[in-house]
Write a protein that binds this DNA or RNA. Structure first.
Lengths: 332, 332
DNA sequence: ACAAAAAATGGAACCGGTTCCACTAAATGA
DNA sequence: TCATTTAGTGGAACCGGTTCCATTTTTTGT
């Protein structure tokens, strides 16, 4: 059924090595070139990639480990990675861990045994076990979304972005603010965004800011905000992700509050749905697809043993919509 | 660096064939088993999958072609496929075509040349060129979401689901209805859902139903509904997808209409965001993840040359939320 | 205790490519 | 024109597994 290089050789009346040379740009006379070209067209021959990889001892697979597939961040990062890898003639291999951190480790080893050329890890947290795995597999690794001094990484500028959204709500006159964050195990989202925000707050005066923690899930966030509103009525709720903001929005609306009149809400991420809901959500847009492209470029460079900065930063942008109101200070 | 089966053989003091037999469950004495086991543990040896596939002339890759990665339907189908394939010891290879239909064809050939064992196609439309490609590559193919008499397929029960949502809004008393559909090139969404809906309408009396067409994008839908509302004020808008419904919702809200008091809206899909928005969207839930699992089972059966029904149906369920009001007929 | 059957093992070929090396034919230079 | 490059080509080994076959070792039955 499927032709091999030997078949092509026989049909063209030359040797295997000549066909191989033709395929890989070695020196072949015009006449033989034409003969080989013809037989390849006729038979629809394509080289067996396993035989190629076996000999070459390298592959053009880049494994990407994602905690989940059904998130805006993951899918858009993947889109960017995929697009760029195609351009660089690499093939993306996606592995979903379903948010189970043990499966992240398993997957690293399993990708290694599949001989991927490099691994991109859309990370949530980096543990000692991760570092061990990185060490053992001895394959280029790129972290996306988290960073660690021992590993190459590409991160969103969470610190600055957190600072920016803090500045933004302060400028809008808010002084009584609730910050809805996540676990500090997640350094990027849980620590750095909050740290940036706090830095902005520290530069203002007379602020009453309370910090709350919730999960990444919007229903959990809705629940958390409902509870919170019992004891604390901020003029603004700053959320560490868009999903949390969506939950907060629903909690406030169900409580009969009008957004942004009664309470302002901001998100973090820039998911499409933040634009379509009513009111539109003011949020910090992160450029996941672009980050994915950069990640792909970096991992390929690492595979090719070119130099890559230990840490690459991806940009952000504040998108102003309707969910934040301007507060007129009392003393005016 | 990376050990081969020959290394293990040497370390254990046996031949390659014995090690291979140990690995694949041939007859090996207890004593040699232990020796080999030990050397494998020591070296951390894993067989080279390329050498294996080369000899075996088959792989454990299942290629899945998706039109886009950033859709609820695609990602949840993929989650199901991935989960089930892992269980069956197959590896998922995802290919994103970015909604370009030519790239679908290219991808079929490219997956074939990568020697995948089977292909799952999350299809939007099946053209003659598709059928040609299926024919040529000579690999088991499974269509998901669309069907064609020549190919195995797994579809959502769009016809019945369309009928069900039609019945549902009729029971709620609606008689002046707008149906927001998509191109008929998409047989499942564009034709079958509408057909089912029409069948329900045909069974009722005194209906004024108008049919509109839009794209899959929520912004396009928003635009379309805004225009529509100029000339037609239905009591209910039935949308062929949740995204369209989201667009309709926003269009109506921006027009100052209250949902569901002034106009009811239904969706199709059961995306998570339909639950979190306000008002919650009444919609037909499709079980993408479960469908994905079934798809994985079916393609593996096809790969193993077991028999599979030409057409498998996935289920649906109407989720009642707040976006549909009950109309009290005038003559009461 | 010995023949026959069963289990265990090693050697060699093979999967489908790539690459090194040797050799021939053509091109170049003096 | 003859020696010397250079381009073009085929043969054989190799990548790391699996499998067939022949041979040796062990087990079984009598």
């Amino acid at each position: 059924m499927n032709k091999t290089i030997a078949d092509i050789a026989k049909i063209s009346g030359v040797s295997k090595s000549t066909v191989s040379r033709y395929l890989n740009g070695g020196s072949v006379s015009e006449a033989t070139k034409r003969k080989i070209e013809l037989s390849i067209k006729e038979t629809g021959y394509t080289p067996n990639p396993f035989a190629q990889s076996l000999k070459a001892k390298k592959t053009y697979f880049i494994g990407t480990i994602v905690p989940r597939l059904d998130s805006y961040a993951a899918s858009h990062s993947l889109i960017g990675i995929d697009e760029q890898l195609k351009e660089l003639n690499f093939q993306l291999l996606i592995s979903n861990t379903n948010q189970q951190i043990e499966r992240e480790i398993e997957t690293i080893y399993s990708l290694a045994s599949q001989k991927v050329a490099g691994i991109i890890l859309l990370a949530t947290q980096i543990t000692q076990v991760h570092l061990e795995a990185f060490e053992k597999v001895n394959i280029p690794i790129l972290l996306v979304g988290q960073e660690h001094p021992d590993v190459h990484s590409l991160i969103h500028n969470d610190l600055e972005a957190g600072y920016a959204i803090g500045k933004y709500v302060l400028e809008k006159g808010h002084r009584k603010i609730a910050y809805l964050g996540v676990t500090e195990k997640d350094v990027a989202v849980g620590v750095r965004r909050k740290k940036g925000f706090k830095r902005a707050i520290a530069e203002a005066e007379g602020c009453e800011v309370r910090y709350f923690e919730t999960g990444f899930n919007m229903f959990a966030a809705q629940q958390r905000v409902t509870e919170m509103l019992e004891g604390f009525q901020p003029t603004c709720i700053v959320c560490a992700t868009d999903n949390i903001a969506l939950g907060a929005l629903r909690a406030a609306q169900l409580k009969g509050l009008s957004i942004p009149k009664d309470v302002s809400i901001t998100g973090f991420g820039g998911y499409d749905v933040t634009e379509i809901i009513h009111p539109g959500l003011t949020t910090v847009k992160l450029f996941f697809k672009e980050a994915g492209k950069m990640a792909a470029q970096n991992i390929v460079k690492l595979v090719n043993e070119e130099s890559v900065p230990k840490r690459t930063l991806s940009k952000y942008e504040i998108i102003e919509r309707e969910s934040v109101d301007t507060i007129i200070p009392n003393d005016l």
